Computed example of a mutant assay.
Amino acid sequence: MKHNGELTEVIGNHIRTDGTQETDIPGLRFIRTSENSEPVYSVYEPSLCIVTQGSKVVMLGKETFQYDPTSYLTASVHLPITGQVVEASPQIPYLSLQLQLDMNQVLEILQSSPQIGKPKGESGRGLVISRMSESLLDAVLRLVRLLDTPQDIPVLSPGLQREIIYRVLQDEQNDPLKKFALIGSQAQRIAKVIDQINRNFDQPLRVEELAQQVRMSSSSFYSYFKEVTGMSPIQYQKQLRLQEARRLLFTEELNAAEASFQVGYESPSHFSREYTRKFGLPPGQDLRRLRGTL
């Protein structure tokens, strides 16, 4: 890819130390790390993720996705994932960017671009790896270059972000992104439920009630939800709860019982068992290991 080297250089000039850096372009952030990482637990929002140097593995449920400079990742809904950088060094650090996707803008572009093919099927996985194209890479490079002329960002950034979404939608691999944007589609109804669970993950979850909200039978809702997220609604909620509890333990200095109640668990012992199953250590030991690592 002829534009990848230049994109890597521009990103490297703007993020010189390991970590995540927000940019002056709304919704655009850079990530850098100079060594292979431990698993990192987070929630992907609708976004486009591009690696320009190195390689990363993302685990969603029991599925594994790997991408590098020859490919890119698209997330169409909020998804609790485990990410791990698997190719990085001080000499050749891992460099990537993440651009948030506005689903209303995705829908508007779909409706105004008849040349974009209609999606096939009802739903699909909410996370997709696609092959990188020169046209997409060129549009992303022109967007990132705006950071060198910040006065141009308000005028030129919206149009370039629109072009990037258009290039992504041209790829048939991204049919799921189209489905999640289309009003009234099965995928969009599932996306609304996913958003609701994200906002209320500490509340009891009743699959029958969620199915009724989207006018599906419980079995159909369960099947569609698992097709999109790679996990059941209960498993999805559990991932959100455990990730938030871990964040609370580390940043708010709560004890395990306090964190468990705050994310919706009624039993601290049940929370501790599920936490250990997820992160490999009980809460207290995991917290000590995290602090020692940092």
Score class of each variant (00 low, 15 high):
P26R: 11
Q235W: 01
D171C: 07
V10I: 15
Q235H: 09
N4W: 07
Q173V: 10
A187D: 09
V58A: 02
L110K: 05
I194G: 13
P176F: 06
Q21C: 13
K178Y: 02
T17N: 08
L7G: 04
D148T: 05
S34D: 09
G159D: 10
N36P: 05
F225K: 14
N36A: 08
P283L: 12
R16F: 03
Y222E: 11
R142D: 14
Q115G: 11
T82F: 13
R273D: 00
T8Y: 09
E244I: 10
Q161N: 14
L249N: 01
L60H: 04
D171N: 14
F221A: 01
L107T: 00
Q170A: 01
E63S: 10
Q212R: 15
D148I: 02
E163V: 14
P282L: 02
K178Q: 05
V77C: 02
R167Q: 15
S267A: 00
Q21Y: 12
V214F: 00
L28S: 11
T17S: 10
M1N: 13
S71A: 07
K179Y: 02
D195E: 12
V10D: 03
R241V: 03
A256H: 13
P233H: 01
Q173L: 10
E9V: 10
G159V: 13
A256T: 12
S89V: 09
I190V: 15
G117E: 04
P233L: 00
A211P: 03
V85I: 15
I25N: 00
M132Q: 04
S96N: 10
V57M: 08
I109S: 03
G124Y: 04
R16P: 00
L254G: 08
Y166L: 10
Q53W: 04
N198E: 14
F261R: 12
S185C: 12
Q91E: 06
M59R: 15
G280A: 14
I197H: 07
E38F: 13
R167D: 15
F201G: 07
P80T: 06
G117R: 12
V207G: 08
F261A: 12
S220N: 08
P90V: 00
P204E: 07
Y222C: 07
P158S: 04
Y72D: 06
L294D: 09
R273N: 01
E38P: 02
V43I: 14
Q161W: 10
V85R: 04
R241H: 00
Y67I: 03
F279E: 08
L110S: 08
G121S: 12
E63T: 08
E87Y: 06
E209Q: 15
R273Q: 04
T17Y: 11
S218K: 15
V263P: 09
L290T: 05
G83T: 11
Q21T: 14
Y265V: 05
L60E: 07
I194M: 14
E22M: 13
R142Y: 10
K56E: 03
P154V: 04
H3T: 09
A256I: 09
E208N: 05
K278S: 06
I190Q: 02
Q105H: 09
Q196C: 11
F221Y: 05
Q243N: 10
M132L: 09
E252Y: 08
S223M: 04
R291D: 06
T33M: 05
Q239L: 13
L254T: 13
L110G: 04
L240V: 12
V155W: 01
Q237A: 05
A256S: 15
L48Q: 09
K62I: 03
S130A: 15
I11M: 07
R288P: 00
Q203R: 14
